[in-house]
Design a protein around this nucleic acid. Sequence first.
DNA 1: CATAACCGGGG
DNA 2: GTGTACGGTTATG
Length: 842
Amino acid sequence: MNRKEDEWLWGWDPTPGIVSVWAEPEGRAIVWRRLPETDALVREDLSFRPWLLLASLEDLGHLGARLRPEGDGPAPHRVTYQELEGPGALRYVIRADDGRTLSSAILQGAARRLGRPLQHLRDLPPEVVFVMPPEEQYLIASGRTYFRDLPFDALHRLQFDLETTGLDPEHDRIFLVALRAPDGSTEVLEVHGDEDDDEAEADLLGRLVARIQAWDPDVIENHNLHGFDLPFLARRAQHLGVPLALGRAGAPGLRQRPSARGASLGGRSDAPATNGAAPGQNGGARTDRQRRTRYTVPGRELIDTMDAVLRHDFSARDLPGHGLKAVARHFGLAGPDRELITGARIHHVFRTDPERVRRYACDDVKEAAGLARLLGGAAFALARMAPRRYERLADAGAATGVLDPLLVRAYLRAGAALPAHEPGDGTSHSGAALHLFATGVAKHVVKADVASLYPSLMREYRIGPRRDRLGVLLALVDRLVDQRLDAKARARAALPGSPERHTHEALSAAMKLVVNSAYGYLGAVGLTRFADVHAANEVTRHGREVLGLLCRELAARGVTLLEADTDGVYFSVPPAWEEADERRVVSEVAALLPPRVHLEFDGRYAAMLSHEPKNYALQPYDGPLLLRGVAFRSRRAEPFGEDFLRRALRCLLAGDIPGVREAYISTVLALRRRTIPTHEVASRVRLTKASSQYIATRTRRRELPYEAMLANGRTHWSIGERIRVYRATGGRAGLLPTPATEESEQEDGDALEGRQGSERTSRDPRDYDVEYYTRQLRETFAARLARALTPADFAAVFDDPGQPSLFTPCLSGARPILTVLQEPQEHRDEAESPVETTATPG
DNA sequence: CATAACCGGGG
DNA sequence: GTGTACGGTTATG
């Protein structure tokens, strides 16, 4: 039993060190392995028997004697079949020595049956035929997976980053490439001679290819590699007639593979639906739902750190943005001397200060390498389990990308027929519970939550897909949960920062990812093979019951419930309670929950402002204020307002209402005295229209950013350029020089010839519209404190300091309020079915 | 003014 | 082969 389930999770072939697999439909496969002991690379050329699944043999009847049972011996041009057992639409494994003969035989039979010609197997319905990409056919048939016994740090990884004159490969050129070699050294390649010369650029691309071939990495990485660098490179190479021999085998050139995300830029050139009508198009401006492609090469895995970043932020939701600089800074990967240059000025700076651009580009590849190691371990670990290429696991969704291949492999290994995708029966998916019990300020706040609630419920109540008759999904979840504990223990046992620790942490992260996607898998009707919305609804129903139960039980123990969402609850305890009392109620309630459902004490806070569902501020007993939800963390909020909000919240949560008033007054006065620098009131925007486009619509509607450009004599700009704009006096639009990164308020060196720090302030015009920003302060920022004050106190706190009212309000006795909602606000994500209300605490 | 479409990133 | 969300802005009726 254990062995079988281990095979479901890990495959069964022990071959170590596979770093890349390339297979062709004709039945040839190349496997590159890095020998863990010697670091040497070995290449195996193999043949395999391509296979696919069919619902019936009728389309192969025309083969006559060439169609034989799998058990019969070899015969020339044979096509074999193996009948799988049990129910399931896809019940025949068909194999041949060449996958093309296989598909043409089926197409021929199906065309005859349907009376119309067929081009591709995908023209047949998925319940009739199922084919996987050749690499996956090979991995499933062989039981092999990537990276067995190989630590992440044994991979030979190379990063490269293009610096270009702009974003559009039709018109812009590559003038510099930074490379980071597998040994960690960096190198810069630059265009020699005339930058506007095709030959000079072609020569640069040739040198890039030569360096990659010389270093021969297993993996090529960069941030937005598939979204920018590869499609840009491919387009330029095509224009210049340079062969891109980036792979380890086969014809030079990048190949394309279909993908959900990825190239928004390179796909355009060969997307049939694109008519190129959009003027001033850049990479991001897609006019239709074109199918995206990604590039792939034999022998190397092309890894985009953006995918790892998105995957991380999907659960963590703590990143300030997804750009390389912001993420690197967030994770502490950016050094203190990190060179920053605004994107639009890189080429310009290169002409006057090339050394700065070299530093910048090298910092980019170093950060991309750091990011790839920090966040890429999960995909690396997934590649040890799932029968897919590493590069595909890096950008795949966990449900269709990881669980589906695991399930397919398990069923075939067991010789069991595979169900086809099934459309839903119309039952809608009911979601989690969300309760808002109180708004305003509460003190002595505790957060308790259930770790991995949904997988725990699936395990506890044995809820799996109805059609998964082998119980593979639950078996995988069970094993992943158990083995994850083991991986976590090993990670803890290893030296911090060591390769072993990194590998075990990555494994643990990957396992968590898969476990948590098991529930999503159930609900993805039409997308996943075994989707079962009834099972998914059963999970959420138990989840709502558990949340309701724990809320009731907590309330019965004398706490005040604040907000509960899916698997966690915030509540406030009586002032006399100690932390031990807080922990005691949590464990008392935990004991009442089902065995696998573990309620945990997750944190304690001095105070909380509950604003709206999923929008709150927390003041830890020590440490900085925590803001959650869009109301408190808006990416484009003006810095002066954010700053005010933080100061006001800190006072508010300390019960200091006069302090809130003071924060407000000082901000208003600072605006009026113009002691707030202009960049603090400016907002960052992106220009999405070309100047000609804007001028065409300008009479109908004026837009601040473009007005700011025009008013500052900027009549030309590129789409996507980021600027800082503000409202200036007299209805004018103000424009500020953009610092190199969103977060950086450091001087923007290249804008200031001579680099005098004081120059910036002396240049600050300070001509912003004070009244506009005062109103903004009151209406959008102060408004977020409304729940915490009585209407009278709110009016007094945010009374205009310049126009003293008749009553000088006395705030010294004012206290923040907490309003316990009579009817707690009940929400349910995607709720369509009748709502069972959770009993409210007494 | 409401709803639909589109964006996130890269130089 | 399939797909990630979701909150915010801009385009359009």
